[in-house]
């Protein structure tokens, strides 16, 4: 029986700090649901902070030099914690460093909550087996759709349904670019420049605009929610860079617009990310940086969820809900 839940945060960038802040700020509400907890370790590239009695607000102010020397792997091996929140940057080719972190945490019997797509894309079934063998849970709501509920929605609330297909807008950057091209009749490059200025697109936007990020999410959805066993290479990928303002013009004449859609369908066997024509009245025709997903099931039929796909607080929402799911009293 755990008396105080000990939490380790691995990766202390925007997301890691966001989660720590929510854990400190909403401590009372969360403790009402799961019991007492404390953050015992924070791991960064530059070093670590560890206190078995718990770290407080001071941890949020820590920068590079404030951390003590030590590696994340040392903390995972030596420190005592019940759940690791793994939020290091994603590498969808090798899955590292997250893959090593998650494997070692599960191996030592710690639950893992992650927002990191890479390890799941590379080794989903292996990690799930590892979790089962060690009788712990691997939770990853934050990997798909950020603050928009999807993983637990399907697993818990749609339990008993057969999932026929899941498809939708899985990347807010692409959706911003496409919906601005639609409304302002601007070129792809004009909107991309604007999106970079607003911090919506990265300096190197390849990962988003080429459909790579969406494809990684398609892999997670297929494996985790449709019980498939697929890899990144199984997904057909087409990005949004070739889309012109005239394409929107022609589409709009028939009341269509264009969105980048990730699709997993059992019926058609389709596993793809591609720009698609959709009716402007379709629930997936959302604008701005929103994400939207349509889940097609045998019993409940169609369910649509719309929400914010990225952001510090939004991602924290998904991580905190995973934490509550694991330790719910």
């Amino acid at each position: 029986m755990i008396t105080v839940i000990k939490i380790a945060i691995i990766g202390f960038g925007v997301i890691g700090r966001g989660v720590a802040e929510v854990l400190l700020e909403k401590k009372e509400e969360i403790q009402n649901r799961i019991g007492e907890y404390s953050i015992v370790a924070v791991c960064e590239k530059d070093g670590v902070a560890y206190n078995p009695d718990g770290l407080g607000w001071e941890v949020l102010k820590m920068k590079g030099g404030d951390f003590s020397e030590g590696s994340t792997v040392d903390i995972i091996e030596t420190a005592e914690f019940d759940v690791a929140i793994e939020v290091t940057p994603t590498d969808i080719k090798k899955g590292e460093p997250g893959l090593t972190h998650i494997s070692e945490c599960l191996e030592k019997g710690s639950h893992v909550i992650t927002s990191n797509k890479g390890p799941l894309v590379v080794a989903y079934s292996k990690l799930q087996e590892l979790a089962e063998r060690n009788e712990v849970q691997l939770m990853f709501e934050a990997t798909v759709g950020g603050g928009m509920p999807l993983i637990k929605l399907v697993r818990n609330d749609l339990a008993g349904n057969e999932i026929d297909s899941i498809r939708g807008i899985l990347n807010g950057t692409c959706n911003y670019i496409l919906s601005r091209m639609e409304s302002e009749k601007l070129t792809y490059n004009q909107v991309l420049t604007e999106a970079k200025e607003l911090g919506i697109a990265e300096a190197d936007p390849t990962y988003d605009v080429e459909g790579i990020d969406s494809a990684a999410k398609v892999v997670i959805i297929a494996n985790a929610l449709l019980n498939m066993d697929i890899t990144y290479d199984d997904v057909e990928i087409e990005g949004i860079t070739a889309i012109t303002p005239e394409a929107f013009e022609v589409a709009m004449e028939r009341d269509y617009t264009i969105r980048l859609i990730g699709e997993v369908s059992r019926e058609t066997g389709s596993l793809k990310v591609s720009p698609r024509l959709i009716s402007t009245h379709h629930p997936l025709a959302v604008t701005g940086t929103l994400n939207a997903v349509q889940i097609r099931t045998d019993l409940a039929k169609d369910i649509v969820v719309i929400g914010r796909g990225a952001g510090q607080k939004e991602t924290s929402s998904a991580i905190i809900s995973d934490l509550i799911e694991i330790f719910r009293k």
Binding site: R167, E238, A242, I243, A247, A251, Y256, I258, R259, I261, S274, P275, R276, L277, I278, S279, H282, L284
Partner: peptide, 8 residues
């Protein structure tokens, strides 16, 4: 040539 298929 990019083909944009309908979602329906």
């Amino acid at each position: 040539i990019l083909v944009i298929e309908p979602l329906n």
